[in-house]
Design a binder for these strands. Structure first.
Lengths: 129, 129
DNA sequence: AAAACGTTAAACCGATTGGTTGACAATTAG
DNA sequence: CTAATTGTCAACCAATCGGTTTAACGTTTT
C-alpha cells in the first residue's frame, strides 16, 4: 500500500537534485565515456575550477560519482547504482505514459496507413548531456 | 557559444528539480491513485495551505500535473509525459547498472562451474536482494 | 628548496528554495 | 444576505544554490 506520509528518501532527494542541473548532467554524460579528473571535467564549461569542483562534490554526495585520488589528480568515475534507484522510482509511473504512448502509436499507425509513403530516418545515440 | 557546452533542457531541469523534494514525490504518489484537489493534496502534510499550493505550482510548472478548476476547487491530475522524458534520459545510462548486474551474474556462473568441478551437483542459484 | 600543478576551503554574492502569515477573490452553504 | 469554504497572492524569512575570488594545501617537477 502506498504511504500516506512523506516518502522520505535522502538518496532520491540527492540524486534528483543532482540531476536537476544541466552542468552536472553534462558531466555525467562525459563520465559515461571515460573516467576524468576534476580538471578535465571542468574545462568544457566556462566556469571557474572551484565552481566545477563544487558540482562534482554534489554528484559525489548523491553517490553518482566516485573519486580516486592518484597523486595530485582526482579521478572521477560514474557510479550508476543510484541512477538505477531513480529509474526504479520512475518505473512506478511507467504505466501512465505507456498507456498514452500506446494511444499515440495507434494514432500514428492510422496516419501511416493514410499517408502510404515516407522515407529515411537517422538515429544518434551519443550521450551528450 | 555558451550553449555548445551545456545542452540546455529546461524540461529536465524542471522535472528533476520537482522530483527532488519528498513532499512533491508523495503528492505525485497520491495523484497516481486518483485526482485530488489542492486541499486534499495538502492535508496529509502538516503544512499550510499556501505551502502545499506552492508545491503543486512547482509540479505544474514541470508539466507533471495539470489543473482543472471546477467551481472553487482546483482538481489536479498526474501528467506522466514529462516523467517519460526523465526516464528516457536515465535510459541512456541503463547499460552501466545492467552491465554491473551482468558481470555479477557471470561471476556467479563462474563460481558455480568451479564448484561443480571441485565437488557435488548442488545447483543453487539464489540471488536474493 | 622552490616552483608548478591539481584541487579544496573560505568568504562572499545575488537568486532561488521551502516555508510562513495575512489579505483577498470567488464559489458555495445556511 | 451572510458564513464558510477553496484557493491565490504578496510579503517576508532563513537556508540553500550556483557561482565567483582569493588563499591555502599536498604532490610532483625542477
Amino acid at each position: 500500500m502506498l504511504n500516506h506520509m512523506v516518502e522520505r528518501s535522502a538518496h532520491l532527494d540527492a540524486v534528483f537534485h543532482a540531476l536537476a542541473d544541466p552542468t552536472r548532467r553534462a558531466m555525467l554524460g562525459r563520465l559515461a565515456e571515460r573516467e576524468l579528473t576534476i580538471g578535465e571535467l571542468a574545462t568544457p564549461f566556462h566556469m571557474s575550477f572551484a565552481g566545477a569542483s563544487k558540482h562534482v562534490r554534489v554528484l559525489e554526495n548523491a553517490g553518482l560519482v566516485k573519486r580516486t585520488i592518484r597523486g595530485r589528480s582526482h579521478l572521477c568515475r560514474l557510479e550508476a547504482a543510484r541512477l538505477a534507484e531513480a529509474d526504479a522510482w520512475l518505473k512506478r509511473y511507467e504505466r501512465f505514459w505507456t498507456a498514452k504512448l500506446d494511444r499515440l502509436e495507434a494514432l500514428l499507425r492510422e496516419e501511416d496507413r493514410a499517408q502510404a509513403k515516407s522515407k529515411s530516418k537517422s538515429k544518434s545515440k551519443s550521450v551528450t548531456e
